[in-house]
Design a protein around this nucleic acid. Structure first.
Lengths: 271, 271
DNA sequence: AGCATGAATTGGTTCGAACCAATAATGGTC
DNA sequence: GACCATTATTGGTTCGAACCAATTCATGCT
């Protein structure tokens, strides 16, 4: 797990940067539960399938039948099937009714199709995430933010802008809005570490999000931040994040450099 | 269902356009099974939940408990849960453990997170898909195509380029490569109707795909086809499509106009 | 009133079983 | 050998049941 303080040497020391206190942030990070601590049978089975079965087979090899895996792993078929379904979601295996389940091409294993923070995403891609704060203040919700957070236009909300880096190079300009009921008057450093840890700490764990991906051109200011030319193509990922209670806890946009970032997904036919 | 001949008045009549014979294409379309013909219980239950339950409730209203729906619909809880899961995938409802299942905001119901053809995609967005053939020929697989279709570099493969329209306006430039074992020597009109119908007709139903989404700038030729300026931002969707047997049946890229198309997806946290 | 406690309710997980649907293997017939 | 019907195998669906985990709500105490 590399869910730690997402920070690398800032290239300049603005007033906002000075707010950061590593201690406070680590305290938040501690609350992140260690994965695999109380994993479910499905998770364990999925891990065993990947490490003990798939790892030893070549692409397009069939893996043992579900009913055999039931005996081998000592779990029910429902559990085996759930584990296989998740592996299929990630592109590890594919299933053919009447025939079997087969190892997929390893180069098409996709990063998780699940909701991740920038840090998690970049870590999964094998790079080191970093951050430089551009803005941290109470703002007034404009039309779009108000609609996305279900708050009145003009309502106060925390506005954060960060330049996100991967392996030290600028990759994304992140603009986040958080509703006031979540943050209160808080503008402390815990808003600048792993935001997803902050959410969990505040009793509003991210549960799902609605994302929209568009193509845009960088304007001059964005281009300078991302160290490229104005007009360069970029992916704009807008997301509304909901917590486990169905509340809207974040409205954000991320503008990703077109030539350094792509978005991968495995899709199935029908349902 | 509007899975019919995806065509609107071509703006010019090239030699390729002349190949089209509506009769032949309809023949292919006939083989498309009528949806809902032999729907599973899960599908029926999902439809009933959407039409009889969700439709009568406001956003954030709780829907009846799973164990009550079991009695109401006369199906097992496993079936109810499968149906609810799919509705959640589409953004119709969200679930809170220990509390209940709630109606989600209707404006965030997403088009299906499943593999669709251009025609299906555009139809779901409430527009009418169209097509103009730019190229239809046997080509030689270059590096990328060879890698994506798992065939030797330089191998013969059918290459199709189409300008796709929505409500008559250009939206996307599609470039598809099909392996020769699928098409044989065929270059007939059935390759120009609904390609997904052709796949099914050929015993190679699309089952899943691996998609990569990037941001690109349009070059001069692309811009002219899409009736915009060179340098305009666009989404490039590359996909490798697999059939139910795990065979690779299509390697394609679609370049979508940035200001007229976006890509929406609902994602969940973890698994 | 306020609060802690515990019971009831809700979705989440896991099991076992039976049957369906598609595919692959078998074996006989010509 | 080529072909076809039969059979076995495999993943897909559905059921019923029990238990777990998180939440909510009623209860009763202070």
């Amino acid at each position: 797990m590399s869910t730690e303080f997402e920070w690398d040497a800032p290239t300049d020391a603005s007033a906002l940067d000075a707010v950061i206190e590593p201690n406070a942030v680590s305290a938040v990070v501690e609350s992140t539960p260690v994965a695999d601590a109380a994993a479910s049978k499905v998770d364990l089975t999925r891990a065993r399938l990947r490490d003990e079965v798939i790892a030893n087979l070549a692409p397009h090899d069939p893996i043992p039948a579900e009913r055999e895996l039931v005996h081998r792993f000592g779990v029910s078929r429902a559990t085996i099937r759930q584990a296989l379904s998740r592996l299929a979601d990630h592109g590890w295996v594919y299933r053919v009714q009447g025939s079997g389940t087969f190892v997929a091409d390893k180069d098409l294993v996709t990063k998780s199709p699940y909701l991740t923070s920038f840090s998690e995403d970049i870590s999964e891609r094998g790079m080191t995430p970093g951050s430089r704060v551009l803005r941290l203040e109470h703002g007034r919700a404009d039309d779009r933010v108000a609609r996305e957070l279900l708050i009145p236009v003009g309502a106060r909300a925390v506005h954060i802008e960060r330049l996100r880096t991967a392996d030290g190079a600028p990759l994304c300009i992140e603009s986040l809005w958080l509703p006031e009921w979540l943050t209160g008057e808080n503008l402390g450093p815990e808003l600048l570490g792993s935001l997803y840890s902050y959410f969990e700490h505040a009793g509003a764990s991210p549960a799902r999000a609605h994302q929209t991906i568009r193509a845009v051109s960088l304007d001059a200011a964005q281009a300078e931040l991302l160290q490229t030319e104005a007009g360069a193509p970029a992916l704009m990922v807008s997301r509304i994040v909901f917590d486990a209670h169905g509340r809207r806890i974040e409205a954000s946009t991320g503008v990703y450099l077109g030539d350094r970032y792509d978005f991968q997904i495995n899709v199935k036919r029908r349902a």
